[in-house]
Amino acid sequence: MTGTYNQDSQRRSLVAMVALLSPAIIAPALWYLIKWLPLQDDCYFRDVWILKALWPHNIFFAEELQSLHHGPKEQCELFASSSVASAYFAIATAVALVALPKPSKRGYRMPAGTEIFGIISICLVFFFVFFDGFDDHATGRGAWVAYRTTDDVGQLFAKTVFRLFMLYFLVFIWALVLRLYLRRAPD
Results as ranks from 00 to 15, higher is better:
Cys123Lys: 09
Leu33Pro: 00
His69Trp: 09
Thr114Ser: 15
Thr139Val: 14
Phe89Gln: 06
Ala16Ser: 15
Ala80Val: 04
Ala85Lys: 00
Leu100Gln: 14
Val129Gly: 09
Tyr88His: 11
Asp135Leu: 13
His57Arg: 14
Val48Cys: 05
Ala185Leu: 13
Arg184Phe: 10
Ala53Trp: 03
Gln7Asn: 14
Gly71Glu: 12
Asp152Arg: 10
Glu63Cys: 01
Trp55Ser: 02
Thr114Gln: 13
Met110Arg: 14
Ala96Lys: 00
Leu176Asp: 00
Thr139Trp: 04
Ser82Trp: 00
Arg106Trp: 05
Leu180His: 15
Lys35Pro: 03
Arg179Tyr: 07
Gly142Gln: 10
Val145Ser: 13
Gly140Phe: 04
Ser104Cys: 06
Pro56Ile: 08
Asp41His: 10
Tyr147Val: 09
Val18Met: 13
Leu100His: 04
Leu30Thr: 01
Ile173Lys: 00
Ile119Pro: 05
Ile26Arg: 00
Ile122Asn: 07
Val15Ala: 13
Val145Phe: 08
Val15His: 04
Ile25Trp: 04
Ser86Asp: 05
Leu176Met: 12
Gln75Cys: 07
Ala80Gln: 05
Val171Ala: 12
Thr160Ile: 10
Ser104Leu: 09
Met110Ile: 09
Leu21Trp: 06
Asp152Asn: 15
Thr4Trp: 04
Phe79Cys: 06
Phe162Pro: 00
Val95Ala: 01
Phe162Glu: 02
Phe127Cys: 07
Gly107Lys: 12
Thr93Glu: 03
Ala53Gly: 02
Ala27Thr: 05
Phe131His: 13
